[in-house]
């Protein structure tokens, strides 16, 4: 589904990603772990098409197509969804108005008819229940004066409505207490399917207790230094990122 080959990315002249290669097949959940500044959020944002970053080398294929040539909205319509680490507030635009517009863009791209207001509200209310969010959310402006936890849940709600083929979760666990984390994880797990792939970007292993990955990759200084099964996350929890660095250093010498 997604194939990243030797990806190099810089922002304002500073090289952040220094040759990432990664393949995600249909239905797989990959965790990308790394300390602050390792480039994991950069990877997530580049895949969504953030114009702040420059790809200096490498390629990314999504379903065989050149992803890097697509505008962010094209990527979304093709089925890529980024759950933001810091969801953006859109004052004056209600959640339902926004999400209906987004869903209809995605539906049209899929060749499906647009939903009218009634049909959308029915769907929206169903999805609200799925992520255990309050009805009043419908009328509130997108993310405006939402708590940190509400913002993250709102990202999951959008994902649940838009039903992407590849979901990228950028530190969805940060700032969540354990109860909110469980709700968010449950929302994500409901979306797991043989047709849907996920990339879960996180600093901590905690989230992976609830969203159990098929593969774990460790990102250090812009490179994937280690890949393995879910046990790798547990090893990281025990030894920390310094432990991985040390073992890599001793392996080299």
């Amino acid at each position: 589904m997604l194939e990243i080959k030797n990806l190099h990315v810089s922002i304002e002249g500073v090289q952040i990603l220094k040759g990432i290669s990664l393949k995600i097949n249909k239905g797989e959940v990959h965790a990308v772990m790394g300390p602050n500044g390792s480039g994991k959020s950069t990877l997530a944002k580049v895949l969504a098409g953030d114009p702040a970053y420059t790809v200096t080398k490498g390629e990314v294929l999504f379903e065989g197509n050149n992803l890097l040539k697509m505008e962010p909205e094209m990527r979304a319509r093709e089925g890529i969804f980024l759950a933001f680490q810091y969801p953006v507030e859109i004052p004056g635009v209600s959640n339902t108005y926004f999400l209906k517009a987004a869903l209809n863009e995605v539906r049209v791209a899929k060749g499906l008819p647009e939903l009218d207001a009634m049909e959308f509200l029915e769907l929206f209310n169903k999805k609200l229940k799925q992520v255990e969010m309050d009805q009043t959310l419908a009328h509130r402006s997108v993310n405006e004066s939402f708590s940190g936890g509400e913002k993250k849940r709102n990202e999951i709600l959008q994902m649940t409505v838009l039903e992407p083929r590849l979901a990228i979760l950028d530190e969805t666990d940060s700032g969540l207490d354990i109860d909110a984390l469980k709700i968010v994880a449950a929302g994500v797990n409901q979306l797991r399917s043989p047709d849907r792939s996920m990339m879960v970007v996180t600093h901590y292993q905690r989230l992976l207790n609830y969203i159990v990955p098929d593969f774990v990759h460790v990102l250090l200084e812009g490179r994937i230094v280690k890949s393995g099964s879910k046990d790798l996350a547990l090893q990281l929890e025990r030894e920390g990122y310094d432990g991985v660095k040390d073992s890599l250093a001793s392996a080299k010498s």
Binding site: A48, G49, D50, P51, A52, E71, P72, E73, R75, A76, R77, F81, L82, F84, P87, V88, E89, I90, F98, L99, A101, A102, L103, E105, V106, A109, Q158, L162
Partner: peptide, 13 residues
């Protein structure tokens, strides 16, 4: 730019 990008990642042109 930030909100523009956010909306685009949801499929809006």
């Amino acid at each position: 730019e930030e909100p523009l990008f956010y909306l685009k990642t949801r499929g809006l042109g």
